[in-house]
Simulated assay, not measured.
Amino acid sequence: MTQSNSRTYRLGEIVARLGGELVGDPGAEILRMATLESAGPGDLSFLSHPKYRRQLRATRASAVILARGERDATTLPRILCEDPYVYFARAAQLLSAEPRPAPGVHPQAVIEAGAIVPDSATVGPGCHIGRGTRLGERVVVDSGCSVGDGAVIGEESRLYPSVTVYPRCAIGKRAVIHSGAVIGADGFGMAPDGDRWIKIPQTGRVIIGDDVEIGANTTIDRGALDDTVIEDGVKLDNQIQIGHNVRVGAHTAMAGCVAIAGSTRIGRHCAIGGAARIFGHLEIADRVTISAAAVVTKSITRAGAYTGVLPSAPSREWARTVAHLRGLDQLAMRVRELEKRLSKPRKKKR
């Protein structure tokens, strides 16, 4: 599978833009990124792991991206760099840049009084832009989006079709929000009153920083009193649920179907695997990695990798099981010590 782009780059141009050391023909023409196995003429590929050296020897790519230590692994034109996978990501952005729609407001869009829509912005058919809403320069709001009263969308952000942004929410610069995402719906705040529930009005907002990407059908709830905050550079996959008053630290990434309950604080530079569950009112330290499907019931105060999931059971039984599991290390040490004592030959009594 290749990624197509209408523009042709010369290899020397790519290095001039992205850096790295060029070995071979700077005039090699590059149209696309491709895997080593599927690449052909006009394709730029990359070697990110030594186990793919065999595919490197057989590739038909016009050029490849290699680690500096792999300089002599091929005679093809090549770009040497510190991290081929990161370089691939940047080259893919360059080669696969999606053209922006022409600026302007579609005749079938509704722009309410007091909304600020600059001439450089694009508003597609069927969109609704609320009263007092502000769109930044070169913002793209694709078809069928709803942006509520008083919301703010930062410059060069893009909302794909059918995104909903509730009133007063703020989205930073260069955000990418994919179809079906809902920003600022009410958090799940209910007070039990005998046999019924009393809804607690959710009066906070959602504040999203710069360079954030939000996947399709992801939902981020507004705060009950304070705001729900997604800091700069956060990357959220599809179908993630962020509860009210959560704060997600800068440059944290989450895979699909993660759920974070209300008022939890996630640190910076964290990585959370798919379908992980994090209980409410917890603190997660910076640079924590949580494995896929893990269930986090207590705060994590130190950086590191964490894994854990148990089948469901009655709550008290489940809690006892977890308590026993946490004592297994000490129990194992005691068993080993006992085995050592028992293995020593006993002295015969005279």
Rank of each mutant, 00 (worst) to 15 (best):
E98V: 14
P99M: 02
R100P: 03
P101S: 07
A102M: 08
P103K: 05
P103M: 06
P103C: 08
H106V: 04
H106A: 15
Q108S: 15
Q108C: 09
A109Y: 08
V110W: 09
V110D: 08
I111S: 09
E112V: 13
E112S: 15
A113H: 13
A113E: 15
V117G: 10
V117M: 12
D119L: 13
S120R: 10
A121K: 01
A121N: 03
T122Y: 15
V123W: 07
V123G: 10
C127G: 11
H128Y: 15
H128L: 15
H128V: 15
I129S: 12
I129D: 06
G130Y: 05
G130D: 06
G132V: 06
T133N: 10
T133L: 14
T133G: 09
L135V: 14
G136F: 00
E137Y: 05
R138G: 00
R138L: 00
V139S: 00
V140N: 12
V141K: 09
S143I: 04
G144F: 03
G144P: 06
C145L: 09
V147G: 07
V152C: 12
I153R: 05
E155M: 02
L159G: 03
Y160I: 01
Y160C: 03
S162G: 07
S162M: 14
V163L: 12
V163C: 10
T164E: 07
T164W: 08
V165M: 09
Y166E: 15
C169T: 11
A170P: 03
I171L: 13
G172L: 02
R174G: 02
A175R: 01
V176A: 08
H178P: 00
H178V: 00
H178Q: 04
H178F: 05
H178W: 01
H178G: 01
A181N: 10
A181T: 02
A181C: 09
V182C: 09
G184F: 15
G184H: 14
G187I: 01
G187D: 00
F188D: 06
M190R: 12
A191W: 09
P192M: 05
P192R: 06
D193W: 11
D193Y: 11
D195H: 15
R196V: 14
W197K: 07
W197M: 09
K199W: 02
K199A: 04
P201F: 01
T203G: 07
T203Y: 05
G204D: 01
R205T: 04
V206A: 12
I207D: 04
I207Q: 08
I207Y: 04
G209Y: 00
G209C: 02
E213G: 05
E213T: 11
E213M: 08
I214L: 07
I214T: 03
A216T: 05
